[in-house]
């Protein structure tokens, strides 16, 4: 049985990088994507004591870098996607459509919205890769 990886940790974001770089579907869907992202995990309703910032640098279907920085000002990514652990779990684990999560503001997106709207296929595949990671979500 595979050990689960805690969501919001360096190990989790590194595993996401592996999954993205192993995925032909992601490579195909995101072949035109250029942009880095912060996943900002809010502590509300979880065992986290503070916000966690998970960084991924996505470039033409590959993940060039992933990190949970000690200092969130280390990166100034083009996009941020923020939400509680519960909201991320609903999308990654429970099949909530990412578009629906954003439309209902469960996940809040900042950045160039027009660019996101032109790249929904790659966003869906990014979420799909997250589902491959056996994840422990640190809910209360």
């Amino acid at each position: 049985m595979t050990d689960k990886i805690d969501f919001g940790t360096e190990a989790w974001i590194q595993q996401l990088m592996v999954e993205l770089n192993n995925s032909e579907d992601y490579a195909e869907a995101a072949k035109n994507w250029e942009g880095d992202i912060y996943f900002v995990v809010e502590p509300k309703g979880s065992q986290l004591t503070e916000k966690v910032y998970m960084y991924v640098d996505l470039w033409h279907g590959k993940c060039r870098h992933a990190e949970v920085p000690d200092d969130p000002t280390k990166f100034k990514p083009e996009f941020t996607i923020s939400g509680t652990v519960k909201s991320f779990k609903e999308v990654i684990d429970d099949g909530l459509d990412p578009m629906k999560a954003m439309l209902t503001r469960k996940l809040k997106l900042t950045g160039n919205m027009a660019k996101i709207m032109r790249n929904v296929k790659s966003a869906n595949q990014l979420v799909h890769c997250c589902t491959f990671i056996p994840t422990n979500f640190p809910l209360e």
Partner: peptide, 14 residues
């Protein structure tokens, strides 16, 4: 580049 392309039960490759 049209967002609705990803809204069906099968999403096509390029």
């Amino acid at each position: 580049a049209d967002s609705v392309i990803a809204m069906g039960d099968r999403i096509p490759t390029t």
